[in-house]
């Protein structure tokens, strides 16, 4: 019995040693003009499990790239869930310089590291292109006493503890920060905001049954409830009013005299020090994707807004984004 166990173990180990020595170092082709093109499948990582926003975006992008033959390679989607994204980022960070690994990201890539929950932040990756933008909405029950953001913030300035705010994610993450960013610009003492989180998406329920006053969420989630007259949207975080039925009725914070915005951006990154020729290749392909009718259709289906940025614009954007978030988190005592 013992002998058998030994033999099987040794067999397994031998196989591992024999095989791990061969590593792939195929970096693709760069022709004399400095143009790069892929020669093997490109792996897109969704740093979350199947079914969520990151996963959906990755799968849709992969599908359009393949079906519209924008990129002449397979683009399998790989899920690396855990740590609010941190596990996936660590995985990509280990793929140094590889031009065959992309991943999808959004504000948590900035926020999670600032909260001290990931050792890698956006500067450890190469921004390639942003494709989607969403905006935040602040919602109250239809019969609530506030009719606009100023009335709400006036009450919060007098007594921050009198108003409770709920969002899906924990303090220091997106739902919380989009509210804090706007409230701060309106002059509210943001450290005293009473924020609750409900990861099971119970925020809307809590506002509807009156347990909590304000729900901070994404614009798209509010439309149907507004139509049914159950809730009202006090303000949204975009620069200008959005287009579309119902959507166009939502007032921005800006037009209410609060000079602040928040973008829930979503785009693609590669490992650090990716070959500039490869970055250029992807940049163009994402531009092509962004302009394709197939992608437009998908964007409409999911209610995603358009926001294309190329690599350079993207890194500038991220820099200012990270700075403003850092200031806010410091003030909240959440930066670690």
């Amino acid at each position: 019995m013992k002998k058998l166990a030994g033999i099987v173990s040794i067999l397994m180990l031998l196989l591992a040693v024999g095989c791990s020595s061969q590593s792939s170092s195929n970096a693709g082709e760069t022709n004399e003009n400095g143009e790069w093109s892929p020669t093997q499948p490109i792996e897109i990582t969704a740093p979350a499990g199947p079914g969520g926003g990151w996963d959906t975006t990755a799968r849709m992008v992969s599908q359009v790239f393949e079906q519209e033959e924008i990129i002449d390679q397979r683009l399998p989607v790989v899920n690396k869930a855990g740590g609010g994204g941190a596990i996936g980022w660590a995985y990509i960070a280990g793929k140094k310089e590889s031009p065959y690994h992309l991943f999808v990201a959004s504000p948590p890539l900035v926020l999670v590291p600032l909260n001290g929950q990931s050792e890698y932040d956006h500067e450890d990756f190469t921004p390639i292109a942003n494709v989607i933008a969403d905006y935040g909405a602040f919602v109250v029950k239809a019969d609530a006493k506030w009719d606009n953001l100023n009335e709400l913030f006036e009450d919060m300035k007098k007594d921050p503890a009198s108003v409770s705010v709920i969002g899906t994610s924990s303090p220091g993450s997106m739902d919380h920060m989009q509210f804090v960013k706007i409230a701060k610009a309106a002059g509210v003492d943001v450290a005293k905001i009473k924020y609750l989180s409900d990861p099971d998406a119970g925020g809307l329920t809590a506002v509807l049954n009156g347990s909590v006053d304000v729900y901070t969420t994404g614009v798209a989630e509010t439309i149907e409830q507004v139509k049914a007259g159950k809730i009202k949207v006090l303000g949204i975080t975009s620069e200008e009013r959005l287009e579309g039925e119902v959507l166009e009725d939502f007032p921005t914070a800006k037009e209410q005299g609060i000079d602040e915005t928040f973008v829930n951006w979503r785009g693609f990154f590669g490992p650090k020090d990716m070959d500039p020729a490869a970055v250029k290749f992807y940049e163009e392909k994402f531009k092509e994707l962004n302009e394709s009718p197939a992608w437009d259709e998908i964007r409409k289906k999911y209610g995603w807004g358009e926001l294309y940025m190329n690599s350079e614009e993207y890194s500038e954007f991220l820099k200012t984004e990270a700075e403003s978030m850092k200031t806010l988190l410091d003030e909240l005592g959440l930066a670690r």
Binding site: A5, V8, S9, M12, L13, L15, A16, C19, S20
Partner: peptide, 14 residues
């Protein structure tokens, strides 16, 4: 259990 541990450690390599 030893087998299981070997399996896990080599899963992503082999």
């Amino acid at each position: 259990f030893g087998f299981i541990l070997i399996y896990i450690s080599l899963l992503e390599i082999l």
